[in-house]
């Protein structure tokens, strides 16, 4: 190997600083959430305790965080499943031009760049003016889809841009029906990317704030509950909650990465070449 140029060491230092910038603050509140009972929102640590985590389990200290957590969890799963199914169908549709495909494409881009508060406001207005009950599982669910679907579709576009169509042709030559081609050729090849779409669908929904603000009704999701806490909670219990939800997010990401790894591992062991159909 040729020796590293000087710029490598400079850029490595820059990259490390970038990682410190990315992770430093989160690690700081991770440490501060173990603050002793008399400690405040910043250093110094006044002892080390689980006091603030215990507080999370007491209703009067923090409000309804466990209820909001379970709502966010259910909503995240609903959004995840819908995002995967709709994105795959949409991705398949966009492989061929169809009348209206250009309009639909620009709608997807609009959905991505439109300020979130507009979705919140517009959906909220429609629901309230037509007398429908605003609820996280109806209006909130749809509002979040306008944020997760564009990401799902962009991933699907990227996947199908790299898709080697000769696999499908081979299947068709062997007499496979269109459905069989999708079920036994296309889906297995794109499966690892679908896990990526699912991960985006879940985490973007689980963390979404602005689009749920006016569309979730009287029961808060977790990000709304946390934001409410920032205005009236001035103890490290806020950090304890932040640490817990971040740990939960990291667990979810870890599980998804593990599934991808296991899928690839199993394929390699069975000598299957599914998933190699990418160019």
């Amino acid at each position: 190997m040729e020796p590293r140029p000087k710029s490598f060491y400079f850029l490595s230092a820059f990259f490390v600083l970038f990682l410190v910038f990315l992770y430093g603050p989160t690690l700081t509140i991770g440490i501060l959430s173990f603050q002793g009972p008399g400690g405040g929102l910043t250093f110094p640590m006044r002892g080390v305790s689980l006091h603030w985590f215990r507080d999370l389990f007491e209703q009067q200290a923090v409000g309804d965080i466990w209820g909001s957590f379970s709502r966010s969890l259910v909503l995240g799963l609903m959004v995840m499943v819908t995002t995967v199914v709709v994105s795959v169908m949409g991705g398949l549709a966009f492989r061929k031009r169809f009348a209206g495909s250009t309009v639909l494409f620009y709608l997807i881009i609009t959905s991505l760049v439109i300020p979130s508060i507009l979705i919140s406001l517009g959906v909220g207005l429609i629901w309230s003016q037509s007398g429908l009950p605003v609820h996280w599982s109806s209006s909130g669910f749809g509002a979040q889809l306008t944020w997760t679907l564009p990401f799902g579709l962009l991933i699907m576009f990227a996947v199908f841009n790299r898709f080697d169509r000769s696999y499908e042709e081979a299947a068709r030559d062997l007499g496979a029906s269109p459905w069989q081609v999708i079920r036994h050729v296309v889906l297995p090849i794109i499966a690892p990317s679908l896990i990526g779409v699912a991960l985006f669908g879940f985490t973007l929904s689980y963390d979404e704030f602005a689009r749920t603000l006016l569309t979730s009704g009287s029961y808060n999701t977790l990000p709304l509950e946390i934001f409410g806490m920032t205005t009236n909670v001035t103890t490290p219990v806020l950090f304890a909650l932040g640490t817990l939800t971040t740990v939960f997010s990291l667990l979810v990401i870890g599980i998804f990465l593990l599934v991808v790894w296991l899928l690839n591992h199993r394929r390699a062991r069975q000598g299957s070449d599914a998933g190699k159909g990418m160019v």
């Binding site: 949409g90 061929k96 009348a99 517009g122």
Partner: peptide
């Protein structure tokens, strides 16, 4: 027709939760 069928769920979501809200605003 096949393209439309595949794109129908996507179009429906965008129509109800993107286009309609913009019109409403």
């Amino acid at each position: 027709v096949i393209g439309w069928l595949l794109a129908a769920p996507l179009s429906l979501v965008l129509l109800v939760f993107l286009v309609a809200p913009i019109v409403m605003i």
